[in-house]
Structures are given as structure tokens and as C-alpha cells.
């Protein structure tokens, strides 16, 4: 067992237990805490895979932004302290069965995937973050000019170089629209009894 494998098993165990905790717990703030651990250890998985920029983005956007927003939402909508919404035993049994079934289907399908390239060097890391930035700014030379590997039957086809300027712009405009829309939806309004 290498250090990479040891770290993978530690992080994967934490991630899996936290994800199950999110699904199982009925207290909504505890679920948010489990989700925090799941997201943070997923960021650890990204660091392990060599995607440093992505791991840090996961931490700053999810943990520092989205999760705080979610807890804020819980606090604003809680009708009493420590909200609990219990779920019946029958519903639990059905969802557990469906979940296990879904997982086994996914696992069977996933294990049939042939790994794209068997000879990844052990110290392989992803391209540094400046290539991501260049691709987002429309430089198509940042994407590698390699042959596509991992196809069934082992054939190679040349891939074209692409850039991601248009998706980046669309996402930016999308975020602006979301900002305005969320502010419009969540603005302070009169409650029902004030209207009546």
C-alpha cells in the first residue's frame, strides 16, 4: 500500500460516511454539517488527484459560500429551535432498497469501464491552473493536441483543439441573471396577514 492509496482510503471513508450521514440524519443543521465534511473531503480527493485549483475552488465556493447560504436559509426558515422532520419507517425501507439497487446498477456499469490508459505514470498531475485560465480566455493552444485514447477497440482519433470562451461568457451572464433573480425573489415582502 502506497501513501497515495492510504490517503485515498482515508479520504474516501470520510467522504462516504459523511454522505451517508447527510442522507440519514433528520436534523437539518446536522445534515448541513455532514455535508460540510463531505464537501471538504471531496476537495481533499481533488488535491489527491492533482487538481489543486479545483480543490481550492470547491472549498471557497461550496464551504465558504454555498454552505453558509444554506445554514442561513435554515435559520431564516426554522419555525422552532433545532428543526426535526421525521420520516416514516416504510419510507426509509423503500428509499434504502432503491438506493442499494441504484448503487449496485451503477457499480456494475462502472466496473465495466475500461480504464482509458493503463500506463499513467505514478507521479502524473493535471495541467496547472494557468492552462485552465488560458482555455477559459479562448486560447485553444492550451488544450493538448493528443490523440483521443480510451476508445473501445483501442483505436485513436485526432481531437481538435477547443477553447472555452463562449461557455465562460455564458456562465458569467448566467451568474448575473441568477444574482438579480435571487435578489428579486428573496426581497422583503409583506406577509399574508398584512395583505388581508
Amino acid at each position: 500500500m502506497t501513501l497515495h492509496a492510504a490517503l485515498f482510503y482515508i479520504l474516501a471513508t470520510v467522504t462516504a460516511i459523511s454522505a451517508i450521514g447527510v442522507a440519514v440524519t433528520s436534523n437539518i443543521v446536522r445534515a448541513a454539517t455532514w455535508l460540510l465534511f463531505a464537501l471538504a473531503s471531496t476537495a481533499g480527493i481533488y488535491f489527491l488527484l492533482g487538481a489543486d485549483f479545483l480543490g481550492a475552488t470547491q472549498l471557497i465556493v461550496y464551504v465558504g459560500g454555498t454552505m453558509i447560504l444554506v445554514v442561513f436559509g435554515v435559520m431564516l426558515t426554522a419555525s422552532g429551535p433545532f428543526v426535526n422532520m421525521k420520516v416514516g419507517a416504510a419510507e426509509w425501507a423503500i428509499s434504502l432498497a432503491v438506493g442499494l439497487l441504484l448503487y449496485s446498477v451503477l457499480a456494475i456499469v462502472l466496473l465495466q469501464i475500461e480504464p482509458p490508459s493503463r500506463n499513467i505514470p505514478p507521479n502524473h498531475t493535471l495541467l496547472p491552473s494557468k492552462h485552465i485560465g488560458a482555455a477559459l480566455l479562448g486560447s485553444s493552444s492550451s488544450t493538448p493536441e493528443a490523440k483521443v485514447t480510451g476508445l473501445r477497440g483501442g483505436q485513436f482519433i485526432p481531437r481538435t483543439r477547443v477553447s472555452y470562451l463562449l461557455p465562460f461568457e455564458i456562465i458569467s451572464v448566467h451568474l448575473l441573471v441568477v444574482l438579480i433573480g435571487a435578489a428579486y425573489l428573496a426581497r422583503a415582502k409583506r406577509r399574508r396577514e398584512d395583505v388581508a
Binding site: 460540510l36 489543486d52 481550492a56 472549498l59 471557497i60 464551504v63 465558504g64 459560500g65 453558509i68
Partner: peptide
């Protein structure tokens, strides 16, 4: 960037 990211988890 990493430092900014982990410092933002303190608030949780």
C-alpha cells in the same frame, strides 16, 4: 488562493 479558501471555512 488556497489560504483564502481555507480561511473562509473558519466561519462555519
Amino acid at each position: 488562493f488556497f489560504i483564502l479558501a481555507v480561511m473562509s471555512t473558519e466561519v462555519f
